[in-house]
């Protein structure tokens, strides 16, 4: 099928889909006028029940913690899938990477920004259940710091400072801590991933019970997963020179 037939086929189907969408949209309640029963309930009671002030985080890591486990495992599988797809036919495996020299301005500026980024990521994770943020968001920011290592120092510094064994272990630990906590709660005679730890006082870092633990486990898993995906794609991007690889 060439592009022209494809476009001709798409036009009526696309028009039908657009009409269907418009029909559905017209049947939705007016923008900003209604709220579901769960939203009303959680907005009113989440803080009192779980002692955290960020209601979406209490949903992600407590009320629907099981769904978040699935979400984490999706990310875990994605890292494995990316590695399998890209590693299976990498030809230049035995070559060593070459770094193109970057400008001094870039090196200094990005080196200054790396600690700031790490701090921002850790802050986003640690206050994830009090103010906007959380393990997923902060984890991605921390992972971005590893990419900045590549921009500042080069590929070899990036690989030396984020050793694959350590990052692999961190990713596994994050996912295992999440499941392990759920199983420990189960062994203690409660529901899987139920919030049984002391809830602490609202508005402080020591609040939320298991929400805080799951938040950190997710932060660790997401930052490690991000770094591993960067590793795989950077390996494709970086120019190689003939000669034995260093690691």
């Amino acid at each position: 099928m060439n592009t022209r037939t494809r476009a001709l086929l798409f036009l009526p189907l696309g028009a039908a889909l657009a009409a269907f969408l418009l029909w559905g949209l017209a049947g939705l309640p007016d923008f900003g006028s209604t709220q579901g029963p769960y939203a009303r309930y959680l907005a009113r009671h989440a803080t009192a029940q779980r002692h955290v002030t960020n209601v979406p985080t209490s949903i992600v890591f407590d009320y629907r913690a099981l769904d978040t486990l699935g979400e984490e495992l999706i990310l875990f599988t994605c890292v494995m899938g990316t590695a399998l797809l890209l590693r299976s036919s990498r030809e230049a495996e035995e070559q060593r990477p070459s770094d193109r020299p970057t400008s001094a301005a870039q090196r200094h500026l990005v080196s200054l920004l790396i600690p700031v980024t790490v701090l921002l990521g850790l802050w986003t994770i640690s206050y994830g259940y009090l103010t906007p943020g959380g393990g997923f968001q902060g984890g991605v920011v921390c992972g971005a710091a590893a990419l900045m290592l590549w921009a500042a120092g080069g590929y070899r510094d990036h690989r030396a400072l984020t050793p694959t064994g350590l990052v692999d272990a961190a990713e596994g630990l994050g996912a295992a801590a999440y499941i392990g906590l759920g199983l420990a709660v189960l062994a203690a005679g409660h529901a899987f991933l139920a919030n049984v730890l002391p809830l602490g006082s609202t508005g402080t870092l020591a609040s939320g019970g298991t929400i805080a633990v799951l938040n950190w486990a997710t932060g660790l898993e997401v930052s490690a997963a991000t770094v591993l995906v960067f590793h795989e794609f950077l390996k494709e991007y970086v120019q190689t020179l003939p000669g034995a690889a260093e690691d």
């Binding site: 769960y38 939203a39 989440a46 979406p56 209490s58 629907r64």
Partner: peptide, 15 residues
Amino acid sequence: LVDPVVQALTLTDVV
């Protein structure tokens, strides 16, 4: 407060 449930869903969606 606006609906927190759909915001949590959006997070899943982004991932």
